[in-house]
């Protein structure tokens, strides 16, 4: 039987919530019996997506980041959304080491990390409307 479980939450675009978001997702997926490595992969990817929304999507900390998570069978899908600035050129934004904020010492590796640690990453964005990052990962494919 396919099990399904879903959650949604939103929170202020404050950096303190980056840790909260990844821990919340890690707790939610715990029922899938992921390995420690899989949990860490998911936490890293969530942290990258949420940090992007906070740094690049928004300017005001009162703006809200929306995070939703769906478990279907052995796959988890995580969506991180903002209604902020939007990305003019997604392909460019996803290039390794590309950053629009070098003054903040951003490494430009956010999307590379999401792609390295999740099975699939889809980004949709509209300038002035916001950005949505959809990530999927199958749990239980690693050995041990």
């Amino acid at each position: 039987m396919q099990s399904k479980n879903e959650m949604r939450m939103w929170f202020d675009a404050r950096s303190v919530n980056e840790g909260f978001a990844r821990v919340a997702v890690a707790s939610f997926v715990a029922e899938m019996n992921p390995t420690l490595d899989e949990i860490s992969d998911i936490k890293t990817a969530v942290s990258e997506a949420v940090t992007n929304a906070i740094i690049h999507g928004y300017e005001r900390p009162e703006d809200k980041v929306l995070l939703s998570c769906v478990i279907e069978g052995d796959t988890v899908e995580i969506v991180v959304e903002d209604t902020g600035r939007g990305i003019p050129d997604i392909e460019k934004a996803m290039e390794p080491f590309y950053t629009t904020k070098p003054e903040l010492e951003r490494s430009g590796m956010g999307f590379s990390f999401m792609e390295a640690f999740m099975d699939d990453v889809q980004v949709s964005s509209a300038v002035g409307k916001g950005t949505s990052v959809r990530m999927r990962k199958k749990i239980g494919v690693q050995e041990g």
């Binding site: 860490s40 936490k43 890293t44 940090t51 010492e105 490494s107 430009g108 590796m109 956010g110 590379s112």
Partner: peptide
Amino acid sequence: EFMDSSGIGVIIG
């Protein structure tokens, strides 16, 4: 226990 690309930025910097 945890580091993401922001940490990479600090070290590269």
